[in-house]
């Protein structure tokens, strides 16, 4: 079996990317909340920021584990992917596809206008 290395994402992909300042708890929460598209009320942001700090302090214990040369484990087992044959089948159709949607027009979903 040829090992499939899961190389560092940070060094390979993020290269020139500069992580925004996360100097303070508030900065960190604001940054990840923006990435995750979740609006937080100020008191909520304060509470979650406090929790995040505690949890991150707790998971610091992982640093003590020597993981040099340990291949990250993504799935249990090492079996290969089972594939499907290239057979087409009708889907739900537009009416069912959009049945639960908050806003639709002519079978399409509607969102606030995106410019560019």
């Amino acid at each position: 079996m040829i090992p499939m290395e899961y190389l560092s994402i940070d060094s390979v992909l993020h290269g020139p990317f500069q992580a925004p300042s996360q100097a303070s708890t508030a900065d960190r929460v604001a940054h990840v909340a923006r990435l995750a598209r979740i609006e937080l009320r100020p008191e909520e942001a304060a509470m979650l920021g406090h929790d995040l700090d505690r949890i991150l302090a707790y998971v610091e214990e992982l640093r003590a584990v020597d993981t040099d040369a340990v291949e990250p484990m993504i799935h249990a087992g090492d079996r290969g992917l089972v594939l499907r044959q290239d057979v087409e089948r009708d889907g739900l159709g537009a009416a069912m596809a959009t049945a639960g949607a908050p806003a639709t027009e002519g079978g399409a979903f509607v969102v606030p206008r995106v410019i560019g």
């Binding site: 290239d86 087409e88 089948r89 889907g91 537009a94 596809a97 079978g107 399409a108």
Partner: peptide
């Protein structure tokens, strides 16, 4: 050039009515 999509069996035909070729 496949008949169905990469991760589901919906057709890849071009030019259908909006969302006609969709599934969960």
């Amino acid at each position: 050039r496949t008949r169905s999509k990469i991760f589901c069996a919906c057709p890849t035909t071009f030019g259908a009515a909006p969302n006609a070729h969709t599934c969960p």
